[in-house]
Design a binder for these strands. Structure first.
Length: 365
DNA sequence: CGGCTTTGACCCGCGC
DNA sequence: GCGCGGGTCAAAGCCG
């Protein structure tokens, strides 16, 4: 979060590149009914051209997993990722100065985070995936935030403090910094953009909300969830795009060390009830369909080794021809440089920023 | 009563 | 050093 804190309207692109260098972008998955999404090709603040070209708006992410998650599907998805920056970026680039405030004015209140996911399981229209390495999400590479271990440490330290109303000396911990050496590495993150009226999308796992924070420059809060399974350190953050309130940004951090409860219970995934799948559930679903091989490759993108994300060659070998790809094509995509430029001047906006960077990085020749 | 959400306080790193 | 903002904690409350 270090870099993010620069002036939202003039952050340093070079600085960003420096930290985002290992990021990569990921494919879009469209799922569910897309009829409610109003595409505005001329409005840079929307997901330009996102739906207009979609030959099959009902082909869903879950559909891919359920019935036809195969090599082609995945490769198509990857092909898309190569040109998906525009898709993600529009909500970020441009302007923002005036619109960020009014973007969500009156659209919905701030009381999100209530996990009423079941009431509308079919809302999601599309989602995109973006991964980011450890440095992502504002955590400058050098000031790693805490992982579970550090969480525990902190918890310990915090106990006395709470008892004494914070007057207790927390300084002691600050002084005793033998442990501070080992900067815990943040888990890889990957984000989904999902068009949904529901904030917390059902993904087959059980989550416990442990916090909610207001997002700077956004009327929508960010909710923090943790997997309820013991010893599973996966977290996710959910927030709504302030520029397109219909879009929910879900960021996963870490890997589930267990099976997807939904899959376990049913022996298969009821994908119709799954609004969005985390990589693990994706993996589970893919495996169920005998596509484990490719799903692993696919998922490997989310968990890059050595912080280096590489697209498998065969993904590049397959020209973009899927509906997913066309869906991603931005009317302004031929204005590559222009777009990038805009992205580089995107406002500081937490998760969205992460997305932009990971995607924009993809554009490098 | 257990599991979950809410919510204010706290921690921490960073920029100024 | 201070304030800001992201992230987390944990007590209190809610709910089935």
């Amino acid at each position: 979060m270090s870099n993010e804190r620069k002036n939202p309207y003039q952050y340093d692109p070079f600085d960003y590149n420096h930290h985002e260098i290992n990021k990569s972008s990921f494919p879009f998955f469209n799922y569910g009914n897309s009829s409610t999404y109003q595409n505005q090709p001329d409005d840079p603040q929307t997901l330009n051209g996102f739906e207009s070209d979609h030959p099959n708006p009902f082909m869903s992410f879950t559909d891919c997993l359920h019935g036809s998650l195969d090599y082609n599907t995945l490769s198509k998805a990857f092909d898309m990722s190569c040109s998906s920056s525009e898709v993600i970026s529009p909500p970020l680039d441009h302007d923002n100065n005036s619109n960020k405030q009014q973007a969500a004015a009156g659209v919905r209140d701030h009381s999100v985070g209530t996990t009423s996911t079941t009431e509308n399981p079919s809302t999601p229209n599309y989602s995109s995936i973006s991964s980011s390495s450890n440095e992502a999400a504002g955590a400058a590479g050098d000031d790693q935030v805490l992982d579970e271990d550090s969480d525990h440490k902190r918890k310990k330290d915090k106990q006395p403090k709470l008892g004494s109303d914070g007057v207790h000396e927390d300084k002691s911990k600050k002084g005793s910094k033998a442990k501070k050496k080992e900067k815990p590495q943040r888990e890889p993150r990957f984000a989904f953009l999902t068009k949904s009226e529901v904030d917390h999308l059902e993904d087959g796992y059980r989550w416990r909300k442990y916090g909610q924070k207001a997002v700077k420059n956004s009327p929508y809060p960010r909710s923090y969830y943790r997997c309820t399974t013991q010893k599973c350190n996966v977290k996710k953050r959910v927030e709504r795009s302030f520029q397109d309130p219909s879009i929910v940004i879900t960021t996963y951090e870490g890997q589930h060390n267990h099976q997807c409860p939904a899959a376990t219970l049913r022996g298969n995934l009821n994908l119709n009830a799954v609004g969005m799948l985390s990589p693990n559930s994706l993996l589970a679903a893919a495996s169920l369909n005998g596509s484990a091989r490719y799903s692993h490759e696919f998922l490997a993108q989310f968990f890059p080794v050595n912080n280096q994300v590489q697209l498998p060659n065969h993904f590049h070998d397959h020209p973009p021809s899927s509906m997913l790809y066309s869906n991603l094509m931005n009317p302004h995509s031929h204005h590559h440089h222009q777009q990038q430029q805009q992205q580089l001047h995107a406002p500081d906006y937490g998760l969205l920023q992460d997305l932009v960077h990971s995607f924009s990085h993809k554009q490098e020749p």
